[in-house]
């Protein structure tokens, strides 16, 4: 079975999902990522979904889980590059992805992770505003 590669950039892990995800692959990615966060002592996780043509509730759940697990391990997760059609469909589906931070692209995602790691207190205030 194909595996989704996890790249390391400084203290961040980068995953770019380029294939149509079937459910086992999603579960495997969830496992691999939690292992790597601990092994690499990563502070940030960025998941690039710009190639994904759909996100259904299963993949949504995987993204939520990764965000929640990395939070427990003191890392922040940012999902980047969601396509407009995918975002509209997710909203209609009723999937809010609460708990997942998002950014438009990889550049902005990295900047957001840096900002949150450097100012953990300000982050909460930011979200309230």
């Amino acid at each position: 079975m194909a595996e989704i590669p996890i790249l390391r950039i400084g203290d961040c892990l980068l995953v770019s999902i380029q294939v149509d995800m079937h459910d086992r692959l999603a579960l495997a990615l969830q496992d691999d990522l939690t292992q790597r966060i601990v092994a690499d002592r990563a502070r940030g996780v960025m998941i690039d979904i710009s190639a994904l043509e759909i996100v259904d509730s299963f993949i949504g759940r995987m993204l939520n889980n990764i965000a929640a697990m990395s939070k427990v391990l003191d890392a922040v997760t940012v999902v980047v590059g969601m396509r407009p059609a995918v975002a509209i469909t997710l909203v209609e589906l009723g999937l809010g992805l609460t708990g997942v931070r998002t950014a438009l692209n990889v550049d902005k995602g990295l900047a957001l992770i840096r900002r949150i790691i450097d100012n953990p207190e300000r982050d909460d205030a930011d979200r309230e505003r």
């Binding site: 980047v80 969601m82 407009p84 975002a87 509209i88 997710l90 909203v91 992805l97 998002t102 692209n105």
Partner: peptide, 12 residues
Amino acid sequence: IKTISAARLMGA
């Protein structure tokens, strides 16, 4: 609200 939620999901 839907429009705003979709934008938020994309990171805006």
